[in-house]
Amino acid sequence: MSADVSAGLEPLAHQVISVLCERQTVTSAGARQVALDYLVRACITPEPFDPAQVLDELRGYRLTLDGVIDLYIPQAAETLGLMWKSSDLDFAGVTVGALRLQALLAEAAVVTPGSSPEDGSALQALVIVPEGEQHFLGACVLAAQLRRLGCGVALSISEKPRQITTRIVCDAPDMVLISCARIAALETVSRTVKRIRSSAERMPVLALGGPLRGNADGIRDQTGVDLVTNTATDVVGFCTKRKKALSGR
């Protein structure tokens, strides 16, 4: 190979290496940046959004459906929020993007249905987004995770504490998972927990999670829940152990 040809290939080689490095970049949460960037672009583009096509594209990046639900959709939602805070995206754009992520979540959840026991022994969960909270997508991601774990799931969005208590008394779920983002909402959560504990004959496991940041032990003591966690398997495991302990009495 002549020196001229070799020199001409050097810029191309650098470009290829640069692209490959970009494809391997991973966010602090573990998402591959190139796939996350594609999903964010799909959410904010003025072009029509086809959730089935977007899901196929994401699977082309060798992503699992569980990964799309558990990692990439929440990470994309967080990115949209950061773009709004930095004025790179207006509120309408964030709203459209969130609705598109909701549609993608529904598509992925249909492809990955949960496997409930045939004997009707599946754990039943109620996922609550309290009054005044706006993070509905996170609650829907949690619901999809619980269904994959074989649980039956119902959603309560912005219901008053007395309405929630009535549902729990009537439906008797095994676990109640409350999603919260603001410290200010903990008072509402505390009132809801007190109503549940004073009204329910069959007490469910009460768990608190969501975007809320703070000392887990302090939040648990303040609200009266059984555990504070952002992991669905933690709640299911806690509930399963408690059911086994009660059945062994």
Rank of each mutant, 00 (worst) to 15 (best):
G218D: 07
V225R: 03
K244L: 11
P211I: 11
C239A: 15
G224Q: 03
V225W: 09
D221L: 15
N230G: 13
G218Y: 04
F238Q: 05
I219G: 04
G237D: 08
L212S: 03
A232H: 07
I219L: 14
A216K: 14
N215M: 07
Q222A: 15
T231Q: 12
T223M: 10
N215E: 14
P211D: 02
K241S: 11
R220Q: 12
K243H: 14
R220C: 11
L208C: 05
K241H: 06
N230W: 12
P211S: 14
D221M: 13
C239H: 03
V228H: 01
N230R: 12
K244A: 15
T223H: 13
A232N: 04
N215C: 07
D221I: 13
N215V: 09
T229H: 12
G218N: 04
D234H: 14
N215L: 11
R213H: 11
G218C: 05
A216F: 11
D217R: 10
R213D: 00
V225I: 05
D226C: 01
T233M: 11
G224N: 06
V228A: 02
R220P: 00
N215R: 12
D234K: 02
G214D: 03
D217N: 08
N215F: 09
G214F: 11
K244G: 00
T231W: 09
N230D: 14
D221N: 13
N230H: 04
K244H: 04
G210M: 07
R242W: 03
K241G: 02
A216P: 00
T231P: 00
G218L: 14
D221G: 09
D234R: 03
R220T: 02
D234F: 03
G209A: 07
A216I: 07
R220Y: 03
K244S: 00
G224W: 11
K244D: 05
T229Q: 12
G224K: 08
Q222I: 02
T223S: 12
T240R: 13
A216S: 10
T233I: 08
G214C: 03
I219R: 04
V236L: 09
R242T: 15
Q222E: 13
T231Y: 11
K243S: 13
G214I: 07
V225H: 01
L212G: 01
L208F: 05
D234A: 08
T240W: 10
D226I: 08
T231M: 14
G210A: 12
P211A: 14
V225G: 06
T229D: 10
V236S: 01
G214V: 11
I219S: 05
F238C: 04
V228P: 02
K243P: 00
V235E: 03
T233N: 04
A216Q: 13
C239N: 01
D221C: 10
V235P: 05
G214W: 09
T240C: 01
